[in-house]
């Protein structure tokens, strides 16, 4: 069933100098368990798109529709920021516990879910550390744990690994794929990194520059587990790169 439906979404920032057409009409849909990657050069409006879906900003036209779940409950939407946005005055455990406490979930249940999450991201021995004591990669893992502990139906991720070095980033990408394997979460992942998109996504939506419009949509059909070195991988990589080149040349 459809978990997310975006129709005709657009956003224009009205500056005194001139109107900035950040996001030009965009429409797409997703099914349960999909991993959608929104790929585009910096400034093409992909972050704006994500924030609108999250409810942090409002579109000028169009709508975002998140249908009620099969069991009649409101879908849970979660978000991972580019800089993690962990709360620096709380340790890792408290950060991950935050969304559960906010929903007044009982202590025993909170405890077991946080512990499980810590184990899944490999931070069990750092549960009492503070964010500033962790490396960048560990902070993002904690941020991911915090968003996943709510068991969201839709997970929005805004270039979460772009501030990390390649190796750490690739490790976390693999982590992410493993974490999501056992869930039916729909993921909307924004990035400007083509390789990341090919590795993670089931479907890549390429967004062009101002205005941010969909240039093309590519389905990535790679076997699991994905190898960055396989020929098919490279094929997808190259074809997407070509699309990117043409985008850049357009300016």
């Amino acid at each position: 069933m459809t978990t997310l439906k975006i129709s005709g979404l657009s956003k224009i920032y009205r500056e005194p100098a001139q109107d900035v057409h950040a996001l030009g009409p965009v429409s797409f849909e997703s099914e349960e368990g999909d991993f959608l990657c929104v790929l585009g050069p910096t400034g093409c409006g992909k972050t704006t798109l994500l924030r609108i879906v999250a409810g942090l900003e409002f579109p000028d036209t169009g709508s975002v529709s998140v249908p009620i779940r099969g069991d009649g409950a409101e879908p849970v939407i979660s978000y991972v920021f580019q800089q993690g946005a962990l709360f620096p005055w709380m340790n890792v455990y408290s950060n991950i516990e935050f969304p559960l406490k906010a929903k007044k979930i009982r202590r025993e249940i909170r405890q077991s879910r946080v512990e499980k999450m810590l184990e899944m991201v490999g931070l069990s021995s750092f549960r009492f550390s503070y964010p500033h004591q962790l490396s960048g990669g560990m902070q993002q893992r904690a941020a991911l744990a915090r968003s996943l502990v709510m068991e969201p139906d839709i997970l929005l991720m805004d270039e979460p690994f772009s501030s990390l070095d390649t190796r750490t980033s690739q490790d976390l990408q693999e982590n992410l794929r493993n974490l999501l394997k056992r869930t039916s979460t729909t993921v909307l992942f924004v990035t400007h990194n083509i390789e990341e998109a090919v590795y993670l996504a089931g479907k890549v939506i390429v967004l062009g520059h101002r205005p941010g419009r969909i240039v093309c949509t590519k389905t990535i059909d790679l076997p699991d587990p994905r190898s960055r070195l396989s020929d098919t991988f490279t094929e997808y990589l190259v074809s997407l790169r070509k699309i990117f080149e043409s985008l850049v040349l357009e300016e």
Binding site: A54, Y79, F98, A102, K103
Partner: peptide, 12 residues
Amino acid sequence: LHLEAAEILGAG
């Protein structure tokens, strides 16, 4: 950023 994070994570 922290206020937005709190809002998204479901905090009243």
